[in-house]
Computed example of a mutant assay.
Amino acid sequence: MSSTPSFDPDQPPERPVDLADSEALDSLVETYPRVLVEFYTDGCGICASMEPILGGLARSGVVVGTINPRNDPPLIDQFDIASVPTFVLFVDGEPVDRLSDGFVPSEELQDFATT
């Protein structure tokens, strides 16, 4: 396991954070009040097409994390990941909503992450 990264609650990241494992995920969602996490896999074309959208969201002030659950398999069961990409919205450290409908347009994902 890698060392758990630390995040600055006063300086949200302006780009998506690549999370190595569940410890990094926990650290991110516990630091910021609202976090959008994409569960993806390498080689997923739809996941790759979401990268510029996630980058735009991060630059607009949304805290975004990305994680490959194959790197930490218990995450697959913990978050019931049956398809990728799956987006999970965390509020105050808890998962509160999810989207697993494939490609999500920018405005729809922005609305999902902020309302």
Score class of each variant (00 low, 15 high):
98 R>A: 15
107 E>S: 13
5 P>T: 05
39 F>E: 04
81 I>C: 04
35 V>F: 10
13 P>K: 04
102 G>H: 01
51 E>C: 10
96 V>I: 11
67 I>A: 03
11 Q>D: 10
59 R>E: 14
102 G>W: 09
64 V>M: 01
82 A>V: 13
18 D>C: 10
103 F>N: 07
106 S>Y: 12
111 D>C: 08
85 P>W: 02
48 A>W: 04
34 R>W: 09
8 D>N: 09
20 A>N: 11
30 E>T: 15
108 E>D: 15
75 L>D: 01
55 G>M: 07
98 R>G: 12
57 L>Y: 01
69 P>D: 02
50 M>C: 06
58 A>L: 01
66 T>M: 05
20 A>V: 11
21 D>N: 14
16 P>D: 00
11 Q>T: 10
50 M>L: 06
8 D>P: 01
74 P>F: 03
90 F>L: 06
103 F>Y: 15
52 P>Y: 01
27 S>A: 15
5 P>W: 00
22 S>F: 05
55 G>F: 05
78 Q>H: 10
37 V>W: 13
85 P>Q: 04
35 V>P: 10
69 P>V: 11
80 D>V: 12
91 V>M: 13
65 G>I: 05
55 G>V: 00
29 V>I: 15
25 L>W: 07
56 G>C: 06
98 R>L: 13
4 T>Y: 00
94 E>Q: 14
28 L>G: 07
14 E>T: 12
18 D>I: 13
60 S>C: 03
92 D>A: 14
56 G>K: 05
45 G>Y: 05
79 F>K: 02
70 R>E: 12
43 G>L: 09
38 E>G: 05
57 L>C: 03
110 Q>P: 08
77 D>A: 13
111 D>S: 14
57 L>P: 05
30 E>K: 15
40 Y>C: 07
78 Q>T: 13
42 D>Q: 13
19 L>T: 06
115 T>G: 12
10 D>T: 10
3 S>Q: 04
75 L>G: 00
15 R>L: 13
26 D>W: 09
37 V>E: 11
64 V>P: 10
94 E>I: 14
36 L>H: 01
36 L>P: 10
8 D>R: 08
66 T>W: 01
56 G>S: 12
32 Y>E: 08
105 P>S: 08
92 D>V: 11
55 G>N: 11
82 A>R: 14
80 D>K: 13
98 R>M: 12
37 V>C: 02
103 F>V: 10
115 T>W: 04
73 P>V: 07
70 R>G: 12
41 T>L: 14
44 C>P: 07
39 F>C: 08
95 P>Y: 11
24 A>W: 02
22 S>W: 03
32 Y>M: 13
2 S>W: 00
